Amino acid sequence: MPAISVANPKGGAGKTTLAFVLACELARSGASVAVIDADPNAIIAGWGRKRVEQGRASPFEIIAGPKESELVRLIDQYTTSHDFVLIDLEGTASRMTSRAFARSHLVLIPFNLSPIDAELAANAVALIQEEAEALGRQIPFRLVRSRDNAAIQTKTAKRIIGAIEEAELPLLSVGLVERAAYRDIFDFAATLEELEEGTTSGLSTARKNAYEVARAVIEAVQTEMAA
């Protein structure tokens, strides 16, 4: 079953949020999901610990703080036993990142629509391409717009999207929109389904966006695996 890595060398790009939202949506659809939290910040692992302390189960399995030497074995193990394996990677280039890329059926690169973020996303693309050259095969990836403005697209955003299209880089058809719900899931150690309209604004639109992002990722995985 597919392994999907989420990577970006810049903090605040929405990497962990994307991995978490995707895990929740896949699990909600009935898939068995394992999340390997290889990010030193261990935000998803921390979310899971809060759930345990509160006596609540997690909708997906969390493997926290893997060692570099065991990452490949873990990915191989969980892709055999689960429908989807998501790897939330550390922000910098490392052997851990390289090993995850080598085992990934798809790499997602979230980025904010700003010039600095776009440049760093390009660095992540270059890292994937270097790893692919070393392996002698392609590593499929998608750039993913993160913290999108749901209402308007700025001139800067349009220019960045235009540059991505001109460079013929693969861009996921749906971006992760900026929503309060995506912050509240970590604050309340909850899933989107567990949050309540009375305490979280824009919840229904966040749920719809999460569903659409997950569907687009599944379609991308199916396309790449078929190829």
Score class of each variant (00 low, 15 high):
E165I: 00
N8G: 07
G55M: 06
D187T: 04
L71A: 01
I75E: 07
S204P: 00
I62T: 01
V125K: 10
P110H: 03
I4R: 00
V174R: 09
T191H: 11
I185P: 07
S114T: 12
M225H: 03
F188T: 07
S58D: 10
D187Q: 14
L176W: 08
S98V: 08
E196R: 12
Y78P: 01
S114K: 03
Q54Y: 01
D37V: 09
K208H: 10
A93D: 00
L172T: 15
S94A: 13
I161V: 15
L171H: 09
A100F: 02
A210T: 08
A93N: 00
E194N: 03
T156Y: 05
A126N: 13
A206V: 02
A23M: 06
F101H: 01
D187Y: 15
A93F: 00
R145E: 13
A121Y: 03
A157G: 09
K155P: 01
F20H: 13
A57H: 04
G46C: 06
E197Y: 08
E196P: 00
N41F: 05
L143I: 10
Q54S: 02
S173V: 07
G65Y: 04
M96G: 01
L106K: 09
I152W: 02
E131V: 08
A23R: 02
L113G: 10
A118S: 14
S98T: 05
T156R: 10
E212N: 02
V72T: 15
P115V: 03
P140K: 06
N41H: 05
L176K: 08
D148N: 03
I161H: 12
I128T: 12
P40G: 11
G136L: 09
A180D: 11
A150H: 04
A189D: 06
R103W: 09
A190N: 08
L135K: 03
D83H: 14
R56K: 15
F186K: 03
A226G: 05
A132D: 06
A214V: 15
R142I: 00
E219T: 03
L106R: 09
A93T: 01
S173G: 05
G55F: 05
F111D: 04
L203T: 11
P2Y: 11
A226M: 15
H105Q: 08
A45I: 09
G11T: 05
Y78G: 11
A38M: 00
R56Q: 12
A126D: 11
I63N: 04
V85T: 05
E219S: 13
R179H: 14
D83L: 08
L195T: 04
T97D: 01
L169Q: 13
A27G: 13
E70M: 15
A7S: 10
D37L: 04
